[in-house]
Design a protein around this nucleic acid. Sequence first.
DNA 1: TGTGTTCTCGTAAACGTTTACGGAAAAACG
DNA 2: CGTTTTTCCGTAAACGTTTACGAGAACACA
Lengths: 341, 341
Amino acid sequence: MASSIHDLARHLNISIGTVSRALNGRADVNADTRQRVLDAAKQLNYSPNQSGRSLRQGATHSIAFMLQPHPGDQQYGEPFFIPFLIGLQGRLAESGLDLIVVMGAPGDYQQERLRRVVETRRADAVVLAWTRREDERIDYLLEAGFPFATIGRSRSGGKAYSSLDLDFERAGADAVDRLVARGHRRIAAIRPALNLNFGYLFLDGYRKALKRHGIEVDPALIADGFINEAGGYQVTPRVMLAKDRPTAIIFNNDVMALGGCKALAEMGIRPGHDIAVTVIVDTPLCRYFSPALTAFRPALEPMGQRLAEMLLASIPAFAGPEGPRIIREVWPLELVARDSD
Amino acid sequence: MASSIHDLARHLNISIGTVSRALNGRADVNADTRQRVLDAAKQLNYSPNQSGRSLRQGATHSIAFMLQPHPGDQQYGEPFFIPFLIGLQGRLAESGLDLIVVMGAPGDYQQERLRRVVETRRADAVVLAWTRREDERIDYLLEAGFPFATIGRSRSGGKAYSSLDLDFERAGADAVDRLVARGHRRIAAIRPALNLNFGYLFLDGYRKALKRHGIEVDPALIADGFINEAGGYQVTPRVMLAKDRPTAIIFNNDVMALGGCKALAEMGIRPGHDIAVTVIVDTPLCRYFSPALTAFRPALEPMGQRLAEMLLASIPAFAGPEGPRIIREVWPLELVARDSD
DNA sequence: TGTGTTCTCGTAAACGTTTACGGAAAAACG
DNA sequence: CGTTTTTCCGTAAACGTTTACGAGAACACA
């Protein structure tokens, strides 16, 4: 059914070497011959066998995305990544690369799965998400010399790898600025407890902005919770019971915010009326929640496309003649003002 | 770095044929030799090169999932599939298969991408979602003789292929039964306009249940809309303006329900008080919307696992000795009663 | 002991590519 | 016309597997 390079060669009465060179656009083939090969390829519906190419070239032409469900969230996964995947896969496809997704069980840190992907060389590069402050996956990949890029950073101890992150520090500061401008001075911050790196960045921005406004940072207004609805539900009352009650809360995760709002509702406190609620990293849940939550939104699909380019640049076989490059970028989040603050 | 079967052979002073047979658990190898090979494999950190295997066996050891974003929904994609993917990938991984995801642009019918996957033989089987009443993708795959399984059915003109679907007909009927039991007799139904097959199944169940209760089916209470928020928003007023106003609406899609609720709110009609709202196919959005929407929930992760098994059964190289089997299953949806009805 | 059977293993071909190498023909040059 | 260069193409090896085939050794049986 599928025609091979041999079929083309036989059909045209030339050697497979010439066919291959013609197909790959090499210089040492007559323009006329090349055209005949291309015509025949179209006519015979030829498309190259990936296994053959991979075997010969030592490249798989695919990228592995290590997708990790929200730890603790059994019911539903992470809608965040879908538009990101769309951008990523689309751009990769343009360069003839496949996207293979590898998932871990929720909460699993997938070191093992990662090791398997690397050792069996099933992909030419991998994508890591949910980067932590100290991330052993990154150390492993660096040591193995395996190409990769992360969405999110880890604490960079001078380690060089490609990463694309959101500016959580800036978003945290912007959120504070906005709330202060609206008259708030007691502003709480709730972030995920695992040492996910973005939680630290967020808190840095939050603290700096408060200081800039001459507001003292009150540890009683800062809390860490498990990164799911229960976590937000559990930890929100803690900051609300501070001596001097906060008039605003910034949640560093959408689902935690929803849990927090549930707790607030049970305390008879209405977001948008009795308290201002801001979420960092917008998702559809923020939009449809009632009241609709003011949130900071990332440009997910463009980020996916950009990450694809970073990956391509990191793979020797696909990077330009100057060899693999390391690219680090931090993208802004855009405020989407809604009804909760 | 990566050791090959030749390294093992050299290390043990035996032939590569024997090594391969030992690794693959064939009978014609001495038990002692096999053990030595396995030990050496572990010691030398051997893992087979997938390209080599694929080339030789003519199988890629991967499954392609044709993931299609919600048509028209630019902002966010389809959270529905994530838990499904988790189940699917997990089960596939157990059998040594990779999951590669292929996306189309929103609204794109991805016939072209599908053709490319099939012709380049990048996967051993594909998964189709969002099946339509008449689905040319299915016809194409059947004609090409390419293994596949669908999530959802199409109108089965006696065509034989593996499919795993939800019992939308039953859910539609159950929704009506529940509403009738709560005193409703004017019940509207809103479903997606594209000829997605589940919309027809749903409406069948809806109609049959009404008739069973001796309630006349009023065409003015049935409407099709574009499968996104705008679609629900646009079409809901239409049924609300029927001569005899409905007291309940069943939405056949979560996002359409949200758009519909927005329209209702603007008309001053409160779900859960002034009207009963039921959604078929629960998502996180239903849970967090206010009021929380009563909905019918699928067992997504088990469905993913099951579909993996169906795929394995459909691939000659992986099916048992009796050859590929066709499996068709319809799974129930579970009612999750919340506050909207 | 002779014959047939069973175990175990080595040999080599094959899967579909890419590419280094070399050579024949054509072109350029004096 | 002879020599050098260029253009173009064929040959063959290589990537890492799997597997059909056959052969030698061990064993069973009469």
